[in-house]
Design a protein around this nucleic acid. Structure first.
Lengths: 255, 255
DNA sequence: GGAGCGAATTGATCCTGATCAAGGCGCAGT
DNA sequence: ACTGCGCCTTGATCAGGATCAATTCGCTCC
C-alpha cells in the first residue's frame, strides 16, 4: 500500500494564488497582495498518489505547506508496529513543523493529494517578515490543538461505538460545511479512509471498527450502501451515540 | 476537593519582569525591553490553592497568561462524568485561547499555583503589535501540539504499564532538566498529582494506576518511599517499560 | 490516643475490545 | 470465466483493564 515509489510529479507551478481553492482558508488567507506575491514566487506544487508517504517519521524535511486537495494522515508508530494516527488533514490544513528540522510523525496521502509547498528555509524567512502569515499560522495551530484535545478525550474515555459515531459526526459536519449546508439525516458520506486508517485514527482494530459499523447499521443509525460510503439514517441518534449532546461544540475545530 | 471558594488573592502586581523566574522560557521571553514594559504594566498576578478551579469548561474567560509556579491540569468531561486530562501545564506554560472567547476545557490548580495574567482584550492588542510575542506564542503552541500528539499515541495504543512508565519518564526528564542534570537512576520525584489526577491523565482508573505502581515496584523498576514520591530505581528499565528506546525523542516537547 | 475521613491499595469478578482464524466480496489481470 | 489479491466481515476465544467491594494507610481534629 505504501509506495515509496516514483518521484511525485511536480506540476503546475504556474498556478496563480488568486484562483486557488484554499485561498480564503489556508495559511495565506490574511496575506496582502504584496505578501502574496512573495509566496506566489516561492511556492511549488506537488502531487502524491493515495498511499504514498509524504514524509517519513523523524525525517529531516526540506519543505512544508498546505493541502490543496485530498486527505493526509499523520501517524506515529511504536517499535513493535502499533500505529496511532495523530492528525488528519484536509484541504487548507497546514502540514510541517516550522522552526524545527524534523517532523515527529509520518505523513502519508490517504487519497490522491495535491500540496502547495515551500522550501522550509524560504518559508521561515517569509514568515519572519509577515505578521499576517504568522497570525494565520498561529490560528491554524491553535485550532489543531483544540482538535487534538477533543481527540484525546475520544481516545482516553470513549467506547468503540462512541468513537466510530464521533468520527462519522466529524465527517458529516465537515462535509455539510463544505457544501454550505447543515448536517442532516439522509446525508451520504464518501469515506476517504480505509477501515485500517479509521482504526488507526480511533485507536481500535479493524475488526472492532467493522463490527461497530455493522452494529450502527443494525440499529438503524446509518446505512452502508457500499464499503466506501455511509448514509446518515438518523443524525440525532448518531450524535447521541457519539457521547455528547452539546450540539456542535466539539466539532467546531474541524469545521 | 474542587473549591469554588473564596476569591483568589491578587498579590504582588508590583513584581518586576526582570527578576521573573520564567522570564527566559515564557511567552514574553523574546520580548524587547520596550515590549516588556507594556506587558509589565498590563500584567497582574493571581494565586490559586491546590484543587481550585481556574476556569470552568466552556466559560467565557476574561484573562489568560502564564504559569509562574505550580502545576495546572486541563480537563474535558463527558456528560456522564467520564473525565480526561487534555493538558498538564508547568511553570512557563501559557494557558488560554487567544483569539477565542471561551476555553473548551476546565483548568484547575493541581498544586498551589501562581499565574501571571493579562486581560484578554489587552493581551490580544499587545499581541497584534508585537511580532516577538506572537512568534514565541506560536512556538509554545507548536510544542504543545507535539506533546498532545505524543499523548494521543499513549492513549490510543499503550498498555497501562507503558502509560504509567511513560508518565514517570516525562516527569523524570522534566525534573532533571529543571535541575540542569541528566535523568538517572536513583533520582527521586515528588509527584505533583494524586492517583486520581494521574488516572485522568493516562485514561485509566485509579485502581489500575495503583496496581501498575505496585507492579513496577515489585519488578524493581521504582521505589515508593511514600505516596507522593517515586524513586527511579532503574531508569533504563523504566524507559523500556515506557515502550520506546528512541532516547529522549518523545520527551523533548515537555522538557 | 482515638475517631473520622479522604486517598490509596488490594482482591474478586465482569466485560469490552483484542487476537486468532475463516470466509466473502469486489476488482484487475489473464 | 477463472485466478489472485486486497479489503472487509464475521465468528470464537482470550485478556487487559473496568467495576464492585473491602481494607489499610496517613492525616487532622478532638
Amino acid at each position: 500500500m505504501v509506495q515509496l515509489g516514483p518521484v511525485p510529479d511536480l506540476s503546475g507551478a504556474i498556478d496563480k494564488c488568486a484562483g486557488c481553492p484554499i485561498r480564503h482558508r489556508a495559511v495565506c488567507s490574511y496575506s496582502s497582495p504584496a505578501e502574496l506575491q512573495k509566496l506566489e514566487s516561492a511556492k511549488f506544487y506537488r502531487n502524491y498518489d493515495a498511499g504514498q508517504v509524504i514524509a517519513a517519521e523523524g525525517e529531516v524535511t526540506r519543505s512544508l505547506g498546505s493541502v490543496v486537495t485530498g486527505v493526509v494522515a499523520l501517524n506515529r508508530t511504536l517499535e513493535d508496529g502499533r500505529r496511532q494516527m495523530v492528525g488528519l488533514m484536509f484541504a487548507s490544513d497546514f502540514i510541517g513543523r516550522p522552526l524545527r528540522r524534523t517532523v515527529p510523525f509520518e505523513a502519508s496521502a490517504v487519497t490522491d493529494v495535491r500540496m502547495c509547498l515551500f522550501h522550509r528555509s524560504q518559508f521561515e524567512q517569509i514568515l519572519g517578515d509577515s505578521p499576517s502569515l504568522e497570525r494565520r499560522l498561529l490560528e491554524l495551530t491553535l485550532d489543531e490543538l483544540d482538535a487534538a484535545r477533543d481527540w484525546m478525550l475520544l481516545l482516553g474515555r470513549k467506547t468503540a461505538r462512541e468513537r466510530l459515531a464521533s468520527f462519522l459526526m466529524i465527517l458529516t459536519i465537515r462535509q455539510a460545511n463544505l457544501d454550505k449546508m447543515t448536517a442532516q439525516s439522509g446525508q451520504v458520506l464518501a469515506l476517504p479512509l480505509t477501515r485500517e486508517a479509521i482504526a488507526e485514527y480511533l485507536g481500535l482494530t479493524i475488526e472492532t471498527v467493522s463490527r461497530q459499523f455493522t452494529a450502527l447499521r443494525k440499529d438503524g443509525v446509518i446505512d452502508l450502501p457500499d464499503r466506501r460510503s455511509v448514509r446518515i439514517a438518523d443524525l440525532a441518534r448518531l450524535q447521541s451515540a457519539a457521547g455528547l449532546d452539546q450540539g456542535d461544540e466539539q466539532f467546531h475545530a474541524l469545521s
